[in-house]
């Protein structure tokens, strides 16, 4: 195990503070989690920011399935929810939230998806784990933990909302 529940909680609290600091408040923020595990992470970050700032931060989800560049290479995939908060994203600062940053392809897809939803003032990226091995010129603005890994390893993020427990672990090469 690389991160336990308390490590995850601390990392999210730090990310929340960094977002506030960088954004100079929560005024125009919209948090969009990338399903599945980015969504509960986004909610947790939103709660922390609300607790500090005393105002509701709009939070939603952004499914990137249809924008993936490997859509044609695998069987058709089930769609995951896209929920844009009622105020939309035009002119806002959108923080994309995901569990693991790896090749960067998911984030590229997310940027395309965002493009069809509206025109934010700025887009930032927050991830719980950055495991390296980028294949595109993409970097995270807020990182919970940098985790150097081998390509054959697998980073497994489990969250209470989806997996009953908070934990990040590195598994060996899949058989």
């Amino acid at each position: 195990m690389v991160l336990d529940a308390r490590d995850i909680a601390r990392a999210l609290t730090r990310i929340s503070h960094e977002i506030l600091e960088r954004n100079k408040g929560a005024g125009d923020l919209v948090l969009l989690g990338i399903p599945r595990r980015g969504v509960p992470l986004a909610r947790r970050v939103a709660e922390r920011i609300s607790a500090v700032e005393g105002l509701e931060v709009p939070v939603g989800s952004l499914d990137v399935t249809m924008y993936r560049d490997d859509l044609r290479m695998k069987p058709a995939r089930a769609l995951l929810p896209t929920e844009i908060p009622p105020g939309g994203i035009d002119g806002r600062t959108v923080v994309l939230v995901d569990d693991v940053l790896f090749s960067g392809r998911t984030i590229r897809a997310a940027l395309d998806a965002l493009n069809d939803v509206g025109r934010p003032e700025a887009v930032r990226l927050a991830v719980l784990v950055d495991r390296g091995h980028r294949e595109l010129p993409i970097r995270a603005d807020f990182v919970g933990k940098n985790l150097p890994t081998s390509l054959v390893e697998r980073v497994s993020v489990r969250l209470a909302e989806t997996d009953e427990v908070d934990a990040v672990s590195i598994d060996g090469a899949p058989a």
């Binding site: 249809m66 859509l71 044609r72 290479m73 695998k74 069987p75 058709a76 995939r77 769609l79």
Partner: peptide, 14 residues
């Protein structure tokens, strides 16, 4: 979407 988006000759969901 479900019939056509995936790899050719492969349907079903991943």
């Amino acid at each position: 979407y479900l019939l056509l988006s995936g790899a050719e000759g492969v349907t079903g969901t991943d």
